[in-house]
Each structure stands twice: as C-alpha cells, then as structure tokens.
C-alpha cells in the first residue's frame, strides 16, 4: 500500500512538472533601455514601450493558457531567432514574418498579426530626396541614401539585397529606437521598419519629427502574417501555442490585450 502511495506521489509530482513546464520566453525590445529587465515591468515612457508591453502580455497569456511556467528575457530582435534556433529560448515574441531562410532555422506558430513595412523619415529628408528624385519618395524609387533598419529583420535582408543596385547605405541597429536615433542625429536619411513598430515609435516622439514616407509595402517579404517563433521539432509545444492563440482570439482576450496597449487591433 505504501509503495502504491509512493508511486502515486511520484506520478503526481511528475505530471505536475510536465504540466507546469518551464519555458524560456524571449520578447523583442524596441529600445536599449528595455534590455535585460527580466521579470520587471517594461519601463513606461521608453520608445515603443506599448508594443513591448503588448508582446509581453500576450506572451504571458499564452504561457498561462498552455499551463507553463515562463521565464521572460527581453532581448534585441536580432538575438531572438538565433536564441530560439539554439534552444536557448523556447518561444520568441518579436512579430516575425515568415521567410524561407527562417523556416529552415525555426518553427512558426499560427499567425498573430499582419504586418507591412514603411519608410520613416523627417519631412525635410523626404522633401530633399523628392527634389533629388523628381518625384515623391517611395521604397521603390529610393536611391543613394542611408537607410537605418532593425538588425536581423526582413527589412534589413531586403535592403541588403537592393543596396548595391540603389547605392543605398544600410545601417542595421539592434533596436528600432536606435534606427530612429540615427534619423534624429542625421546619421541616416530614412528608416525602414515594420509599420506597427514605426507607428509605435513616431507617435511616442514628443517632438513629432518623423513621418511615414511613401506607401507601405507588403511584397518582397516585407509584409504578411507575423508569428511567434519556437524551436523546430517542438511539435507538441507548437500545437499547444496554436491552441492557445485560437482560444485567446476566440474568447476576446486578444482584442482586450491589444486595446490595452494599442489603439487598433489590426490583425
């Protein structure tokens, strides 16, 4: 009888451990000040804090739904994908667009958001380049400029691809806020960012120095659905996360979380 009790106790403990599996969750930051704030609240007032808080709360809700104990790591975007690939992180929240080269490295959840990319600049730089080009600046006609973008992003991949032909100087920064710092310091003419990231940053710029330049672009891998990334061959975890996303959408939690940090749902 005592042996049976011991087995039951071990089984209960083991199942409890399984149910409350510990996951390491990486959340992409928008500003260097938000890095390494493990377990702490996102410092309000820092650039893009709302977007980080939104991803953070969504990540916590997913952890709760999959019954996992999560440790959160706030890291630059460029560290998330390698970290997930090397299994240092179990989940990566950074609004990742799907791309063939990424598919080889990590697995993707079901879609969370939809995203496009857009140039950001100052009105002065937009006017100057429009004069130089003889037409309003767009991503399609931009030539001979310095473009800041997020390191490791699809936007950087795109710019690297066209940089030679367009005589562009690509300036990759660890965080989106630093890309805007380049604009602010006149070390870059434009920044190419995901639209939501760009919106989060320029609306929080008190001086209102930045504007969107040209139309948004969703082709060339610069827009589509964005996802949570997780290590390959973690199919059980991926199914759990997908189920959690569906539940969060289905019961209205997704919209409630989004509206706490963002004026629009835009999924």
């Amino acid at each position: 009888m005592s042996r049976l009790r011991a087995i039951a106790l071990i089984a209960a403990l083991f199942s409890g451990l399984l149910q409350a599996a510990e996951l390491k969750v990486a959340v992409g930051v928008q500003d260097p000040a938000q890095v390494s704030m493990q377990g702490n609240l996102v410092p309000s007032g820092t650039p893009g804090a709302d977007l980080v808080a939104l991803n953070d709360e969504l990540a916590r809700e997913v952890c709760r739904r999959i019954n996992a104990r999560c440790a959160f790591f706030y890291v630059p975007f460029a560290e998330i994908l390698p970290g997930v690939e090397e299994r240092r992180f179990d989940l990566g929240f950074g609004n990742f667009l799907r791309a063939p080269e990424r598919e080889k490295r990590v697995a993707f959840s079901d879609p969370v958001w939809r995203s496009s990319s857009r140039l950001i600049g100052t009105p002065d730089s937009a006017r100057a380049f429009a004069d130089k080009l003889g037409q309003p600046v767009t991503l399609g006609n931009l030539r001979g400029g310095r473009v800041a973008t997020l390191e490791g992003s699809r936007q950087q991949a795109f710019l690297d691809d066209i940089a030679g032909r367009r005589e562009l100087t690509v300036l990759a920064t660890p965080t989106p806020a630093e890309a805007l710092d380049r604009l602010r310091d006149n070390r870059a003419d434009f920044a190419l960012l995901a639209i939501r990231t760009g919106y989060a940053l320029i609306r929080s710029d008190k001086a209102q120095r930045f504007v969107f330049v040209g139309p948004a672009v969703a082709d060339h891998g610069l827009g589509d659905t964005s996802h949570i990334v997780l290590p390959k061959k973690r199919n059980t975890l991926r199914r759990s996360v997908n189920r959690a996303i569906a539940e969060i959408r289905g019961d209205g939690t997704f919209n409630r979380i989004t509206h706490r940090h963002f004026p629009l749902t835009l999924d």
Partner: peptide, 16 residues
C-alpha cells in the same frame, strides 16, 4: 496622432 493612425491603418496588408 489621428493621421498616424490613418497611415498605420492604410499600411495594413489586408488593405494593401
């Protein structure tokens, strides 16, 4: 702020 939101919405892939 309203204009930013207009631009954000107009940039959404569903519209593009």
């Amino acid at each position: 702020q309203a204009l930013f939101l207009v631009m954000l919405v107009a940039s959404h892939p569903s519209i593009l």
